[in-house]
Simulated assay, not measured.
Amino acid sequence: MCSNALLVISIYRFKRLKHPSNYLVLSLSSADLGIGLVLPVALYFELCRSKIDTALLCFVPFSILILLCSVSILSVTGIALDRYISLASPLRYNNIITDRTIGRYIIGFWVYSFLVSCTPVLWWYFIRPEKHMIACSFNLIGYQVRLFLFFSLFAPCLFFIFSSYAYVYVIARYHARAIFLVELSLRRQTGEVETEAKYGRTLAATTGLFLVTWLPFQVCMLIDIFHNTDILTGKATFYLGVLAVSNTCINPWIYGYRNSEIRYAFSRTLEEFAPKLGYILKSLVPIKKSCAGMPSYASNIRLCHSPKLVVNATETTHTTYLHPPETTYLTETSFLARNSANSVTTTVVSL
């Protein structure tokens, strides 16, 4: 809940992060945050097996959980397709992926997920119209509904995710080899292998964690349906369900904080909100040599407070001083400039 909430707040507060690709991440984090809020109620029903007279009260938390999990899976699929389009049609990407287009897709994700989440309630009232039930549990959702959820949501999303990331890996590998051939004279022979291994690890983590969390529950469900077994009974439903829902804890770190801009916004948000909660944090934003995260300054900046560095007093008037980071190296060059009156020694500082 904390990681998803901070990600939502960071994207909302910083205008630079408000672009179509991050809107999908925002939809994903919102759904995952909702799962964290609804999960305690669903776990209470699943663990305590409370007897409830009204069937609707029992199905409401599980239906909301299905709604939010569906939005989460659809948002992950949308992110995969967004990365696929950025490589398949790079010149048309800005025309295809716009704010209006992504907004329509996100609304479609939520509407479709709402319709899917209503199937357990409709199935109960039309197939089993009893007014009372023995104990409230997720196992009350029939195998017909579970099979419908698998083929209408999980199976197509899994296909699009794997297809998109497989294409991304092939194109990234091709680009890595092309860059390696161009810079062959400047790079070592192991550069290509290291780059391809990095791409492979990133995509394996993205798709592998999705499979590890969601696939066991779906496989056991299919085995129960087609082989008449009882794997998903009792505590097995609880443990496999919690494993599937744990994907919501991983999503912010895979799709959000791996982005340098989102990390910077996340750090700024923590630095601003932590003092209000009684905590004092040091700067969490690392200053790199490239100074990419720093704002632009005027051209009359002078670097000072460096050991054994003297700057002429006449040149420091009406200038802006910037304290250099510890990893910045300064060099100085002295030369003589003569005029009719006297000689002046001037120190030129270069970064």
Results as ranks from 00 to 15, higher is better:
residue 117 S to E: 02
residue 117 S to A: 12
residue 136 C to M: 05
residue 122 L to V: 01
residue 140 L to Q: 11
residue 116 V to P: 03
residue 130 E to K: 07
residue 121 V to F: 03
residue 100 R to H: 12
residue 99 D to C: 07
residue 104 R to S: 06
residue 99 D to L: 09
residue 117 S to L: 03
residue 97 I to K: 14
residue 115 L to M: 04
residue 97 I to M: 14
residue 108 G to L: 12
residue 120 P to Q: 06
residue 112 Y to M: 14
residue 117 S to W: 03
residue 95 N to G: 15
residue 112 Y to V: 01
residue 136 C to G: 00
residue 134 I to Q: 13
residue 134 I to P: 07
residue 96 I to H: 14
residue 123 W to E: 00
residue 103 G to V: 06
residue 110 W to Y: 08
residue 114 F to H: 04
residue 115 L to D: 00
residue 116 V to M: 12
residue 97 I to G: 06
residue 143 Y to N: 10
residue 96 I to P: 14
residue 113 S to N: 02
residue 137 S to F: 04
residue 107 I to S: 12
residue 121 V to A: 05
residue 125 Y to T: 02
residue 127 I to Y: 09
residue 102 I to S: 09
residue 104 R to Q: 09
residue 143 Y to M: 08
residue 105 Y to N: 04
residue 114 F to M: 08
residue 103 G to S: 08
residue 142 G to L: 07
residue 142 G to R: 11
residue 129 P to T: 02
residue 98 T to L: 10
residue 125 Y to L: 06
residue 137 S to T: 10
residue 111 V to K: 10
residue 117 S to Q: 06
residue 116 V to C: 11
residue 121 V to L: 03
residue 108 G to W: 12
residue 91 L to W: 15
residue 124 W to R: 12
residue 104 R to N: 08
residue 102 I to P: 05
residue 137 S to Q: 12
residue 120 P to D: 03
residue 113 S to Q: 03
residue 100 R to E: 12
residue 131 K to A: 04
residue 118 C to M: 13
residue 95 N to D: 15
residue 106 I to H: 01
residue 114 F to A: 10
residue 131 K to R: 11
residue 94 N to W: 15
residue 126 F to C: 00
residue 120 P to V: 00
residue 140 L to N: 07
residue 114 F to N: 05
residue 94 N to V: 14
residue 93 Y to G: 07
residue 142 G to E: 08
residue 110 W to C: 03
residue 105 Y to F: 07
residue 100 R to F: 10
residue 125 Y to Q: 08
residue 93 Y to A: 10
residue 103 G to P: 04
residue 113 S to G: 05
residue 112 Y to F: 14
residue 109 F to C: 04
residue 112 Y to Q: 13
residue 105 Y to T: 02
residue 104 R to E: 07
residue 108 G to M: 12
residue 122 L to P: 00
residue 113 S to W: 01
residue 127 I to S: 09
residue 102 I to G: 07
residue 114 F to Y: 07
residue 98 T to K: 13
residue 97 I to W: 14
residue 111 V to I: 05
residue 90 P to G: 15
residue 121 V to C: 01
residue 126 F to E: 02
residue 97 I to S: 11
residue 102 I to H: 11
residue 100 R to A: 10
residue 91 L to D: 15
residue 126 F to K: 01
residue 97 I to E: 11
residue 92 R to L: 14
residue 140 L to Y: 05
residue 141 I to K: 06
residue 135 A to E: 14
residue 125 Y to H: 11
residue 121 V to I: 14
residue 106 I to R: 03
residue 111 V to D: 08
residue 126 F to H: 02
residue 122 L to Y: 01
residue 130 E to V: 00
residue 113 S to I: 03
residue 132 H to C: 03
residue 112 Y to K: 13
residue 105 Y to L: 09
residue 121 V to W: 01
residue 140 L to I: 05
residue 94 N to R: 15
